Computed example of a mutant assay.
Amino acid sequence: MADLKSKFLKVYSVLKSELLEDPAFDFTKDSRQWVERMLDYNVPGGKLNRGLSVIDSYQLLQQGRELTEDEIFLASALGWCIEWLQAFFLVLDDIMDGSHTRRGQPCWFRLPKVGMIAVNDGVVLRNHIPRILRKYFREKPYYADLLDLFNEVEFQTASGQMIDLITTIEGEKDLSKYSLSIHRRIVQYKTAYYSFYLSVACALLMSGEELEKHIDVKNILVEMGIYFQVQDDYLDCFGDPETIGKIGTDIEDFKCSWLVVKALELCNEEQKKVLHENYGKPDPENVATVKALYKELDIEGVFADYESKSYKKLTSWIEGHPSKAVQAVLKSFLGKIYKRQK
């Protein structure tokens, strides 16, 4: 795995060098330096799970056949396209949320001299993806499918972000809008497609498969993505900031979090009043009151129950899939996220 990760990081260096010499734009010394610094700060800093999953998935779909260097490079390039997409979303997401930290360091837009230039940097990051795809996949029979896939997933993610933002409009803090079905919709579109489906879809296309024939795989991965986000919501409140690399602000930000939705389902009228009065307020006392209510309702226990039921349900769906290779891909995903701490 360490070897794979170091190979993967080498591909990042190759792609970055090529983008900094892209013939479509005449770089100045300053602009080249800016883009390089912006890329190094935002693209390779995370866990790289989404990107590495393309290589893992493609390898598993080949059922034991050793991959050629060219195949590893192409799978890595697609993996990096997903990491670029993630960087684009996160740079803009942090601005919209007014966040302070990301991956254990200040958000890009918080850096001196960056500020709102970060908005354009996000657009640049997004535009690097078709440049990479064009260079390496233009002659492949699945090139159009790849472009379609990235465009569709980006559209789904942006639409999910929109539902999230309009559900939490400033000055309209109304908890009665929040429900499990709204939470599920936000998560399905905002997170599940790009974080789970996209990696496997890239590997399937590289393997010569047609995505229309794998709707069941998409559905299982979307369910897995929803489970992953529920874990994220849980870790935002109960996780260790040192471990997860950020300070959770879902309570202050009035987020439609799984925790608040479950709390609303479980609490009595008096507790509901406490939640309405304290949720979405920046004061640490209000936040502490909400967390105390979560403890009172045993939200941690409710989550543990949800986690074990989700794991059983997903495992039985995966085992029902006719292809052993696809089963291996899906089991590998589930294994990576079950009971994660970050």
Score class of each variant (00 low, 15 high):
121 D>F: 06
314 L>W: 00
192 A>M: 04
75 A>S: 14
327 Q>K: 07
187 V>Y: 05
95 I>S: 08
234 Y>N: 00
340 R>G: 03
85 L>C: 11
100 H>L: 14
222 V>K: 00
115 G>M: 09
256 C>H: 05
254 F>W: 06
67 L>K: 05
251 I>P: 03
70 D>P: 00
47 K>E: 10
83 E>R: 04
134 R>E: 15
15 L>D: 08
27 F>W: 15
197 Y>W: 13
313 K>Y: 10
165 L>K: 08
171 G>F: 06
319 E>S: 06
179 S>D: 14
199 S>E: 05
74 L>G: 02
224 M>N: 02
36 E>D: 14
32 R>V: 07
195 S>V: 06
19 L>R: 09
220 I>K: 01
208 G>M: 01
111 L>N: 09
104 G>S: 11
75 A>I: 04
82 I>S: 10
336 K>E: 10
325 A>T: 05
3 D>G: 11
39 L>K: 09
290 V>L: 05
140 K>P: 00
335 G>Q: 11
26 D>H: 13
232 D>S: 00
51 G>F: 00
315 T>P: 02
24 A>M: 12
289 T>S: 10
148 D>W: 11
300 E>S: 11
100 H>D: 15
77 A>K: 04
14 V>S: 12
111 L>V: 07
138 R>F: 14
5 K>Y: 09
319 E>Q: 11
160 G>F: 02
187 V>H: 05
133 L>Q: 09
104 G>N: 09
303 F>W: 07
35 V>S: 12
196 F>H: 09
251 I>W: 05
86 Q>I: 00
136 Y>G: 03
128 H>L: 15
243 T>F: 07
120 N>E: 11
323 S>D: 13
258 W>A: 00
281 K>P: 02
242 E>S: 10
213 K>Y: 09
172 E>P: 01
144 A>C: 11
249 T>W: 00
264 L>K: 12
138 R>Y: 14
313 K>E: 12
244 I>G: 04
147 L>E: 15
173 K>Q: 15
229 Q>H: 05
210 E>T: 04
281 K>V: 08
127 N>T: 07
126 R>P: 02
46 G>S: 07
67 L>T: 01
98 G>A: 09
35 V>I: 15
171 G>P: 02
249 T>M: 02
146 L>H: 08
124 V>W: 15
156 Q>F: 13
186 I>T: 04
314 L>N: 00
250 D>L: 01
167 T>V: 04
46 G>D: 06
128 H>D: 13
197 Y>G: 04
35 V>W: 15
307 E>Y: 03
319 E>R: 10
247 I>T: 14
172 E>D: 14
255 K>F: 02
269 E>T: 06
266 L>V: 02
30 D>F: 11
199 S>C: 09
165 L>E: 12
301 G>Q: 10
95 I>P: 04
119 V>R: 11
66 E>N: 11
242 E>K: 13
244 I>A: 04
327 Q>I: 01
45 G>P: 01
243 T>D: 13
283 D>T: 03
258 W>Q: 03
225 G>H: 02
42 N>W: 04
147 L>H: 10
321 H>A: 01
271 Q>D: 13
92 L>H: 13
127 N>W: 12
168 T>H: 07
55 I>A: 10
236 D>M: 03
100 H>T: 15
132 I>N: 08
152 E>N: 13
137 F>L: 06
104 G>V: 08
20 L>A: 06
278 N>R: 03
3 D>K: 13
18 E>T: 08
175 L>H: 06
302 V>M: 07
39 L>G: 05
156 Q>V: 12
273 K>Y: 10
308 S>N: 14
295 K>E: 15
